[in-house]
Every structure is written in structure tokens, then in C-alpha cells.
Design a protein around this nucleic acid. Sequence first.
RNA 1: GGGGGCGUGGUCUAGUGGUUAGGACGCCGGCCUUUCAAGCCGGAGAACGCGGGUUCGAUCCCCGCCGCCCCUACCA
Length: 486
Amino acid sequence: MKGEGMPPPRVRFAPSPTGYLHVGGARTALFNWLYARHTGGTFVLRIEDTDRERSTDAHTKVILDGLGWLGIQWDEGPFFQGAYGPRHKADAERLVEGSAAYRCFCTREELDAQRREAERAGLTFRYDRRCQSLPPEEVERRRAAGVPSTIRFLVGDEEIAWDDAVHGRISFQGRDLDDFVILRSDDTAIYNLAVVSDDIAMAITHVIRGDDHISNTPKQIALYRALGHEIPVFAHVPMILGPDGKKLSKRHGATAVGDYQDQGILAPAMRNFLALLGWSPGGDREILAEEEMIALFTLEGIQKKAAVFDATKLEWMNGEYLSARPADELLPAVTRRLEQMGVDWGGRDLRPLIESVKTRSRTILHVAERVAVRLEPSRSTLDEKGEALIRKMGPAFATNLERAADALEPLRNGEWTAEQLLASLKDAAESHGLKLGDAMQPIRVALTGSTVSEPVNELLEVVGPDRSLARMREVAERVRGAGSAR
RNA sequence: GGGGGCGUGGUCUAGUGGUUAGGACGCCGGCCUUUCAAGCCGGAGAACGCGGGUUCGAUCCCCGCCGCCCCUACCA
């Protein structure tokens, strides 16, 4: 929002490829992307791979794939920060020439000792600037002698403040900041310099990032100024926490977007959920289409406080998307999963099966498992509720199951349809003086292992006469056997 | 220790100087099914972190406190 004519914003997402694409990073990327799309700006992707030890190509690929999966397209890049070493170094040296920074010959050991000393005395350690007063000749002499040195930025005493797009005005006192190192003794840049140098070079106008960077911001602002550049708009988005209120990390379980992809979460659901974690369009909206999110997105709508990642709500939302999606669209993901499970569906059209289970499923994994069970009921495993029912009904369980099988037997070669099945089941229940539920539930448990499914007659229809009948008789026999053996 | 940020039901959040503080997830119950769900309807659950002020009136404005989180590296 600076300058005349307000050129379209340029934003960037700058992950370090030192791990997987974290949901927090994914959300930061999403916010940048939404902002760019909302304003007609440009979204730049920059991989911050300057930490050579921890950065790997595999991680980079995972990040790119994760963004792609979420449908977050970047307009420029990916650029790799590692390629800009020379510029970083030149910027640092330029600052030394302008006396905004100075060479420091203190060794890590000396610094550590000073830090320990200060700590022991109960004081706040601050670099004492001893190298700043070194005469130029001395600096030259040491450099010529090959003494290693870093470059430190000279932080002034004045206040450094900015109007954060989500937090409002934030200010720091220069005297509370240390003269921080900007260039290592191996001539590579420290994070704060690298980001500022790159953001300037890439003409970034809005820096939208995690609020764990708030403390870095005054240093970066000082760098912008020293480098003779106008500062961008900063928008610090809140952290994402685990259920225990601690910053979300691996020990909370699934934290990489790939984990959710593997768990059968749909990309649009993930994106919708992430968008609403720390951002609100105002009002009561929950399910938002991509275009709506873009239209409604503003930096002002971003929450200040950290948000707890609620996987249960994510699954609920995924269930909403699942139910709304036609079986056709779910087919590829489901078949992929079925293949992983080693299920052979013999060329059968899976869509009716998907159709019958998707409403009651929350993830693609659930859908695939349930489809597999309907393909072959013997794959089912008895859950607690199923067990409870068998226990509760006692001998009636097997008896009713067999009676139902007998009653349905005639439909085997005729009308094995949902309507006909229901009619026959009702007749059978009536003639045996049973409540419909007592006739239905055993079938449900026999075929799925659980007491929850689509209506029983529909279940029977998708499973088909042969497998249904065989399974019902087999389970009846087994349950009776177990019962009498007791 | 120093500096900074944050604080509305368990969780995600809306919201305003005067509201029965709204919605969503989850939880509980009802309806519907002579069936479990799904769906629909309803309910419980928040003294809007605490204590002061300003004000006729504060969740919303000011101050203090407390709690949580972040930074405080030749990590990013």
C-alpha cells in the first residue's frame, strides 16, 4: 500500500526444505496465495536452502508436491536462495563500506564465554562492540593475515516500529537489539540478511509469514533502511498449536500435509479447513468454495491469536466434501487406495458402492475400507458395537440371521433389489413376531462387522445375493458355535 | 533474565459502548426409519483471563497483574 498508483502486490512463500511441508507452512502459503489472487498480485515461491546441512532435494520436492496438491500455484519461481550468495555477500560488504556494519573477529568460543559470563552475573548478554572500534589498518592487517571474521550489523538506539497488517503497530527499541551477525566467516549470509536481500531483489511488497518472525522484523527493517530500501507491509499470522497448546510438532502426530493426503483427506477440504484456521471471512461461513475464499480474503480478517489444530473438525469438513462430491470424482482416489490395500474388484463398477458409503464416511480411507467390505464381507472386522449386539441378542442373533437368510433366499434368482429386500425382510420379521430392527441389525453386523451402515436393504443390494447369503449363514453358524461352546 | 506477541464455551470463531454474547466442530437428547446411521430439530456448555479505572452503562476504551507463546545463535 505504499507509493503512488499502488502497483499490484508481490508476495512470497519462503519455506526451508529442512523437513516436510508442515500444516503451518501450508497455511502461510495459502494466505499468501489467497492474498495474491484477491488483489491480482503475484505469488513468488522461494526455497530457502541456505542451511546446506539440513536442506535436501527430497524435502524440496515434498514441499512443491504439497503445494501442488493443495492447488496453490505460484506465479514465479521456485527460486533457490542458495543461488544468491554473491548478492548477499555484496550487500553485507556494502553495509560495511557505509559504516552500517563492521567486521568482527571475535571467535565463537570467545562469544560463548562472554555469554556464559553474563549469564552467571545475572546480566543480559549483549555484544560489547569491541570490534567496531578496531582501526581500519588493524582490520586490514588481520584480514590480510587470514584471520576469520564475520560481519555484524550496527544497530542504532532509535525506536523501530511498523504497522503490522494483522497486529497493528508494533515497536521495538533499537537498544534492546544486539549487533547481530549478518555474514558468517565463510561469507554466507545469516537468515535476516538473506531474506531482506532477496525480498528487495524480488520486489516483495507484502511479507505474510508466521508471527514467530515478529522479533526478527525490527532487525530486517533496520536492514531495509540501511540498504536504502522502503519496507514492505508486514502481516504476521498466528501459530498453529497442537491439542496441548504447544506449537504443533511431529510429536503431535500428523503435521505434514502429506500425512493428511495419505489419510484420505480431500485437497479442497484441507484447503478450506486451513483457510479458516486463523482467518475468518466474518459471519458464519464454514464451507467456502475456492472463488469465495479468494473474494473474501483480507489481511484484516486474520486472527491475532494462535489456533489449535482440530483434526476432528478437519474430518468433519472432509466428510462434507465427500458427501457433496459425485462418486465419479471420488473413484480415482478410492481405486488407488484399494490397490494399495491389495483389493481386487474384478472390473466391477465401484461407483454404486462408493455412492452407498460416502455419506457416512469422513475420509477416502473410510470409503475404501467400506467399499472393500461390500465387495467381500469376510474382510470385515467386528467392532465393539457389533460385539455388543451379538452379546446382547444371545442365541436370537444367529436365529434371526438364519431366518432372514431363508426369507431372502427366494430373491436370489429373482428380485434382489432394495425394495424387494425390504419387503421380504418386513414380511419375515412380521411372521416371526420380530421387530424389524432385530431382523436387520444382525444382517448389518454380519455383513459389515458394525452396527452402522447404509439402510440394510441397500447394503444387501450392493453386496449381492451370493455373498450376502453365504456370509449371513456363515456368521450365524460361527456365532452359534461360539455360543454353545461357552 | 531482557524484548515482543496473544488471551470470547473443550476446540475453530462472529460480534458490538447498552445483544437472551451468534455460528461451527465435538458432546447429549428428540424426530425420522416397525433398523444403526445419515438428515432434520433441540439441549448442555462462556461471569467474553484477573483486578482496577473511564462511562449512566463495559466483552468491546485506559492501566496494572496473571497465564501462554515467540525471539534473545557465525539456525531458518
